[in-house]
């Protein structure tokens, strides 16, 4: 069935696809030899901070939607 989705549904679809890409990349990274994983890239902490910020933003948005 073809669904006529609004903008928020499209955004959710994009988020899910991006999360899937991250999941795949992390899984591929975990399968590599341990030596390669011992040297974290310098931007690793920045990535973690961005992940935390995005999760925080999502939490805030869900909270807003729940409470109107």
């Amino acid at each position: 069935m073809e669904l006529d989705l609004d903008e928020s549904s499209l955004a959710i679809g994009r988020i899910e696809r991006a999360l899937s890409r991250i999941e795949k990349a992390l899984a591929a990274r975990a399968e590599r030899p341990a030596s390669a994983a011992t040297a974290p890239p310098p931007e690793s902490s920045a990535l973690k901070a961005e992940v935390a910020a995005v999760i925080g933003e999502l939490d805030r948005l869900i909270g807003e939607a729940k409470h109107g």
Partner: peptide, 13 residues
């Protein structure tokens, strides 16, 4: 806001 989060997660990916 959802679109902006999608942008940021795609950039993260």
């Amino acid at each position: 806001a959802l679109m902006q989060i999608a942008d940021r997660i795609e950039a993260l990916a």
